[in-house]
Write a protein that binds this DNA or RNA. Structure first.
Lengths: 182, 182
DNA sequence: CATGTCATGTAATCCGTTACATGATTAC
DNA sequence: GTAATCATGTAACGGATTACATGACATG
């Protein structure tokens, strides 16, 4: 139900169309909660069915403008204060690390160095974005700054970790092959 | 396709049943890639259909022991070296931070302090687990140590971030309510 | 009048979760 | 003999991804 509440949260800042919300999603929420166009339009219709938003205006080009209702605001607040966040954090890149021992050490090391490079680049991207954003405008952006700071710290430690881990490979030595050889 | 390759990776360490693999998943891979019993048994059958594993033995109590095939090993290696990891990291807890401005500052602060506490507790849990594990046994565990170290660093920085963010709330001031009030 | 952008929707498929169902063996 | 553990499977449902489809308006 996170997409649903993501949309409600954006609508607190004012009425918007699905198209508007999609653009905002892509620029801001996408790194913590990506959503496709399909999913977003579907969810808006369901929110309207449930009375958490209303179509407050129909503009040109079939545009439907949605406004959050009091019920929607209540639901958002309930979500924020009473529902435990889902702590499940799937991490494809980290899953692979478990199995690096099945590769030659050179390749395992290459994998970790690539990870380091990716995180370092991403950190720089976030730093640039933080610098170029006007943090004054709107509640939403003010808290967005906290989120981007978390992203920067995350990318930084992951980069550091990957560099350290790449160094550890030499000490771990060659793979032990069970079942097949031995 | 991560569950699939997680299973293949575990089977490199030797033949195992679905039941065995489920236990290993729960203890080790679960924090980076949780899987349910249902999903796991289903995927093993699909792996067998695709010739990446074979049923090498049928034991008591309907137990089926799976062994990875050369094709399975090749597929695992291909995944590890040629396929870019999926970088999408959905984060329910962080999504909420975008919308903390819709709450009273006291509540926003409470949310972040709770986050800090959760991460600090989790960090301690991982530190204890790292201390109590025998890191000598098997390739798998040796790389598992790198993963757990990453978890410790992640939990640590997230905890630090949440404490810092809680402190920032005072400076961000009261929420600006658009659409409804104003 | 053709192309681009604004704007919304549907359908197929995949992955993951929850719940249910059942059988075989061991330990008390 | 009954409870616990080992062991595997199915069915229903929901969320996410991809692809496809279409319409309306603006610009050159």
């Amino acid at each position: 139900m996170s997409l649903r509440h993501g949309l409600l949260g954006l609508l607190v800042d004012g009425p918007a169309s699905g198209y508007d919300l999609l653009k905002i999603f892509e620029q801001s929420l996408a790194f913590v909660w990506p959503a496709t166009q399909s999913q977003l339009y579907g969810e808006l219709n369901r929110l309207a069915d449930d009375g958490l938003v209303v179509v407050s205006d129909e503009g040109q080009r079939r545009r439907k403008e949605y406004t959050i209702t009091p019920a929607g605001r209540a639901d958002l607040e309930h979500w924020l204060t009473d529902i435990e966040p889902n702590r499940i954090r799937r991490n494809d890149a980290m899953l692979r690390v478990f199995f690096l021992g099945t590769l030659e050490p050179v390749q395992a090391k290459a994998y970790l160095e690539r990870e380091a490079a990716v995180h370092e680049a991403f950190e720089q991207l976030l730093i640039d974005q933080a610098r170029d954003t006007n943090w004054e405008a709107g509640t939403f952006n003010r808290y967005g700054r906290l989120v981007i700071e978390s992203g920067i710290r995350y990318a930084h430690t992951q980069g550091e970790w990957a560099r350290w881990a790449a160094g550890e490979i030499d000490e771990l030595g060659p793979p032990t092959k069970r079942s097949g050889a031995s």
